[in-house]
Amino acid sequence: MTLTILATFLILNISLTGQMPDTISLRFERKIIAENSTEIVKGISYYKAPQKLHIEVQHPLKQIMVIENNITTIYYPIEKKAFRIKSKGPVQMPFIQSILSAMKDDYGLSDIGYTLTRSEKKGNTLYTYWDPPKEYKKQMGRFIIGIENGLISYSEALDPKGKTVVKSIYKKHMELNGKFFPLEIQSEIIEGSKKTNEYIIYSDVKFNISLPQEVINFSIPNSVPIKEIEW
């Protein structure tokens, strides 16, 4: 819930502000380790400002996911199956969200009402502590950012009770227009007694490119039945 609200804020905030790339393409590899299972997902992601994301999953199966505003379309070209999910609010954009956030000062936290309450230096890392806006203090907790040599190296999101929800470590930063964003993100997601580790690696990141025609003109073939889901 905390992260959902935060992500919604960031989506709205990012889509309303300028100085962002018009298009982004990248390859991704996501590894999730939870309890006794390991899952690896690989593919390509295309972003078109302000709010369209096209993801082609290549492993472990062929899947196309398109997120545009509050509609998520999922298509399986081999199985010839499709889902269209209509949400009430904006949908979080996997992968691209972290890059867009990294390109804003303070990760966009001050723009969405978070206030810097404290900072401290431990070794080479400067930690800044951010509190949520008053009206959302029941849903959202503190956010901690660690910066090393001007680059984000650590973040931690807490719930309103002060318990850690997500801890992330950022590595291998890439520069665009003076802004740096990480190509490797390791996260630990804590839900009660359950811990999940997520590793994301980005490669072949390109900005302001012409998107492929099949991405621009993507549509589900008429012969494929679509299961409509409304939230």
């Binding site: 472990p60 199966l61 899947q63 997120i67 998520t72 609010g89 996997p94």
Partner: peptide, 19 residues
Amino acid sequence: YEPSPPASLLLGKSPEYVA
């Protein structure tokens, strides 16, 4: 009221799983 699931949870999952 019905909340929306994050799209990232459905990434790389089979149609049976998504349904």
